[in-house]
Design a protein around this nucleic acid. Structure first.
Lengths: 197, 197
DNA sequence: GTGGTTAGCGTACGATCGTTTGCTAAACTC
DNA sequence: GAGTTTAGCAAACGATCGTACGCTAACCAC
């Protein structure tokens, strides 16, 4: 049978959303059409149809995950003015995202980075853009805060981006693998200390 | 035909070594018996035989990767005396390991952590032990250095472990995904600055 | 030398993989 | 309301998955 165009769009969204959940725990590579169809109660052709191929479905899932990261961390921070204020907002949102955020198994972007970093292709290129834009956003806030005199100019902006990113990644491991309940608060404290110089 | 017991051991080692290389780029999950057999010029039964099952082969590969990490970073550091000296040695070895170490696609342990952290089982349990022991080793060197007065006691040992681990993870992404040639030197500098307080 | 042991091969099994091809029936277009 | 479009299903394709079974031939103990 056939659904309306609006219903079809919802179906597509449902497929992608379920795909994000599955890929979050098992990886993008384990996102098979059959298991996704079973989880959705659909046929395999119905699942892959809106995307054309499994590769394009994976790309849609990765894109959705990136959107979710931005929606959780970047977008709400834009209520704060650029610079130190926004940086502080980002840190709070970021640590909240790491601790029980939209993904059941930790930061999707970090997981995808580890999974895809050695595999050239469309997925890797897309992810590279996402990570590069995110790091550029972070760096920009640092530079603005430095220009405003809110962050010491003795700190190198790239160094700070590496430090903040690293704390988030370490916290992600502490939360997801080690099960350390103190990790989110520690990450938040360390990040704030890092930008305080 | 049959090989000698010594040759059989070498065959097993060859299977694991090739498995580590394959799993380094494609993940432990993508380590299939068929592709491994083809890469080795062996039959599938010959590949899985020494291990019994694919799951046990994956465990052997993960164990070998952990051994390689320890051999590259921990073992050589033990020539330096415990505390600040050993910590400095570890930092140098660690950054060298991240930059063109034994794995073709970055830190195997970090990749496995992201891949396995949401999947309970023998692999995850084993990896959890590896990571916990590594972090405990790092922490111990910090505590020893603090007792010797070489690191400020105002720094929390757990904080320092998180910071160092994080810098390594961020550098790993910068090297493997972003292709930043400045990453290894920056990581080394940031790690040394972190323990300098 | 002889006989048991075993490393590794070849083959086959059922299951699942991604993809393709008809098909149905409901939603659109006019 | 008739005709076209299309969302999604059902089925089948060859390929590959992990595992199991004989089998062979070389090693090792005696």
């Amino acid at each position: 049978m056939r659904r309306s165009a609006e219903a079809a769009r919802q179906t597509r969204d449902r497929i992608v959303a379920t795909g994000v959940t599955k890929a979050s725990t098992d990886g993008l590579d384990a996102l098979t059409i059959g298991s996704l169809a079973q989880a959705l109660g659909m046929s395999k052709a119905g699942v892959v149809g809106p995307f054309g191929s499994r590769a394009d479905l994976q790309l849609a899932v990765l894109g959705k995950a990136a959107d979710m990261f931005i929606a959780a961390v970047v977008a709400p921070s834009e209520k704060a003015e650029p610079g130190l204020r926004r940086l502080r907002a980002v840190i709070g949102l970021w640590c909240g995202y790491l601790d029980g955020g939209p993904f059941p198994n930790g930061c999707f972007v970090t997981a995808a980075s580890c999974e895809l970093d050695g595999r050239p292709g469309e997925l890797r290129s897309f992810l590279l853009g996402v990570v590069a834009r995110w790091r550029a956003f972070l760096r920009e806030q640092v530079v603005i805060a430095q220009a405003a005199g809110d962050i010491a100019t003795t700190l190198d902006a790239d160094d700070l981006v590496t430090t903040l990113t690293g704390i988030a990644m370490a916290a992600n491991q502490e939360i997801q693998l080690l099960g350390d309940p103190a990790a989110p608060a520690r990450a938040r404290r360390l990040m704030l200390a890092a930008i305080a110089g």
